[in-house]
Nucleic acid binder design. Structure first.
Length: 276
DNA sequence: ATCTATGCCTGGTGGC
DNA sequence: TGCCACCAGGCATAGA
């Protein structure tokens, strides 16, 4: 599941291939990815150039001449650069033909990903980005401000950290890793945390995310290394996917549970619940 | 206002 | 081997 570091890696990789290129054609084997009428989307996008790629949280923003294409990869979305489209494989849904006869192809096994076109400058008017929180690795993140939001909640801290309205960029993998490093139990009720603990969580989150970006993200479900998602952070994982393995810190056995419906890995010794 | 449940999807897995 | 129920999960939306 692409989280902030994976999306950042995709952004950096794609930049080398598509910046300055014009979209000459659009092939849409599965147009439902696009959150608008296909004919309108097509009319708008043909002839536009890719001028930049931005990212906010887990959202990719392709900056065109007159529009921004907002793309979310959700669970399994991937972009490939292809030199020919003689065969369109099963999970390729949206394909942009560029003016150098190269193709930018969006691939998504579960079809959860979305694409949305907005007028340039209107990116933060769309609902999903309108209410999104600051990025978790933003050096100017105000921990007081986040603390105020967190302690208003009765939800589990893990659930709160996955809520992109509080902070953006964390997904299931990096939340588990963050809470392990901060020594906080994922089921801890958010309003039981004190400021220092919240500060520690944010500090851990930033260091986890920064390191993951440096290593090109995490590759867990590998088919083959697809463009931009063959990271190396999986070697740094301390708890996520480590059920029944010894904790690197205390040697206790890593447990797997469910928190807010999500598979959750933690060390019962390092991440004890606070006494209520 | 907050929070929870459901739907969107397909491939992989485990039971029979 | 084949069939099938079930699970994984980010986010929008409906409902409590």
């Amino acid at each position: 599941m692409p989280e902030l570091p994976e999306v950042e890696t995709v952004r950096n990789t794609l930049k080398n291939y598509i910046i300055g290129r014009r979209i000459d054609d659009l092939i849409t084997p599965y147009p439902d990815i696009i959150k608008a009428k296909l004919s309108q989307f097509r009319n708008c996008i043909l002839g536009q150039r890719f001028n930049d790629i931005l990212r906010f949280g887990k959202y990719l923003i392709f900056v065109l001449d007159d529009y921004s294409l907002i793309s979310h990869l959700r669970m399994e979305g991937k972009y490939f650069i292809r030199s020919s489209m003689d065969e369109i494989t099963k999970h390729e849904h949206i394909i942009f033909k560029l003016d150098n006869d190269v193709f930018l192809s969006y691939h998504d096994v579960r079809k959860f990903g979305t694409m949305e076109l907005v007028n340039i400058g209107q990116e933060f008017q769309v609902k999903s980005l309108k209410s999104i929180g600051k990025e978790v690795n933003d050096p100017n993140l105000d921990s007081q401000e986040i603390y105020k939001m967190i302690v208003k909640s009765n939800r589990a801290i893990k659930t709160v950290l996955l809520d992109q309205k509080i902070v953006s960029g964390l997904g299931n993998i990096y939340v588990d890793e963050t809470l392990f490093r901060a020594r906080i139990n994922p089921e801890e009720v958010a309003n039981k945390l004190n400021f220092q603990e919240v500060k520690n969580i944010l500090k851990s989150a930033k260091s986890v995310i920064d390191k993951a970006i440096l290593l090109g993200g995490t590759t867990i479900r590998t088919y083959q290394s697809s463009l931009g998602v063959d990271g190396r952070f999986q070697n740094e994982l301390a708890v996520h996917t480590k059920e029944n393995e010894p904790c690197l810190v205390c040697n206790d056995t890593i447990k797997k549970t469910k928190v807010g419906g999500r598979g959750t890995y933690f060390c019962p010794t390092c991440q004890k619940r606070k006494i209520i």
